[in-house]
Amino acid sequence: MKKLGEEQSQRSGSSCTRRKVEAGYALLKVDQKGSLTSSKQEFTYSEILRITNNFERVIGEGGFGAVYHGYVGDSQVAVKMLSPSAVQGHQQYLAEVNLLIGVHHKNLTKLIGHCNDGTNTGLIYEYMANGNLKAHISDHSPFILKWEVRLQIALDAAQGLEYLHYGCKPPIIHRDVKLTNILLKENLRAKISDFGLSKIFSTDSSTISHISTVVAGTPGYLDPEYTKSNRLNEKSDVYSFGVVLLEIITGRSAIDKSQNNIHVSEWVTSSLENGDINSIVDPRLHGIFEINSAWKAVELAINCVSSKLSQRPTMSQVVSELKECLDKGPAWTKGSRHIELTETRPLYSITESSPSAR
């Protein structure tokens, strides 16, 4: 693929890389850690074709279109193209662009740019090398995430939601928190993605406690209170996150179709009567986890999915509790990536940095 032309510019003693794209000029920067940042430029369809090498590699399929791998300069990106027939998808595309232009957090996927060229619509994101969390929690995964790694992923996602609820003015409710909307970097650190259903509170949010809206989201993760009343608030995200945390802990799906569609929260509540944490935590871990950490994580998750909004914690409280869960767990080595073997399959370890893949 032909590389985009580039030239160096200096501003206030720091350097940035300016990559020239034929039909427009996208100002892209590489930060001190080598991560791609952007002024969120609009790309033409011909540029998208070059970025993806004519849509050569599909890396995902969504409800409204496919996701392709590509390069902007030397940096990998993910390009989500919208199917022309997806009318609802176009509305979500506009919502996502408008929202992501104003949010910046290490635990939210970074929007590099977008395309709205005739019938061709797409979003360009930073590339998340390890895909979505569901693929790693699934029983079909050839690897097993270590207990501490699971907690760190949960904490990363919680911090992203905390920022949406309390770091954004006005606050933002994600409305579709689930395993497939938590993406993992090369080093297994997590970011929240897919903001197409997100809702923004009134600028005078201090005077309101909820938004009345048509129910939208994913079965199994939807807050029952929201589905009954059509009243949406930040505790709806807390419920969805609680379901995700239960899935992370147990390795089970939100709804188990093999067991009469039992919800994971019902299964865990029933299992708690036995008082045996080993029967709740993902059996593929073979008991390799810290007992107190596991109990605290389960208690937190159950509180998150409480039927009463008042009993659910805030995302700030969730972040604090998850940090305590990690403190209760054994320390693990930070450094070069390695894989430890169990009796059956390897468990991922977490790293602070790893070599870039290309």
Rank of each mutant, 00 (worst) to 15 (best):
M1W: 06
K2I: 01
K2L: 03
G13V: 00
S14M: 15
E22K: 15
A23V: 01
A23C: 01
K29Y: 11
Q41T: 08
R50N: 14
I51P: 00
N54L: 04
F55M: 09
F55R: 08
I59M: 07
E61L: 13
G62T: 07
V77L: 02
Q88T: 10
G89N: 07
Q92I: 02
Y93I: 01
L100T: 04
N107T: 05
H114G: 00
I124Y: 09
I124K: 04
E126Y: 00
L133N: 09
A135T: 14
A157G: 06
Y163D: 05
H165E: 06
Y166Q: 12
C168F: 08
I173L: 12
L184Q: 08
K185Q: 07
N187W: 08
T203H: 09
S212R: 15
S212C: 14
A216V: 04
L222I: 12
D223L: 10
N233I: 02
D237Y: 01
S253M: 11
S258N: 12
W267E: 01
L272G: 11
N278I: 02
N278A: 10
V281R: 09
R284V: 14
G287Y: 01
W295A: 02
A297S: 11
K308S: 08
Q311P: 02
P313A: 04
S316R: 14
E321S: 09
G329A: 13
A331F: 01
K334C: 00
I350H: 13
T351A: 12
S356K: 12
A357T: 11
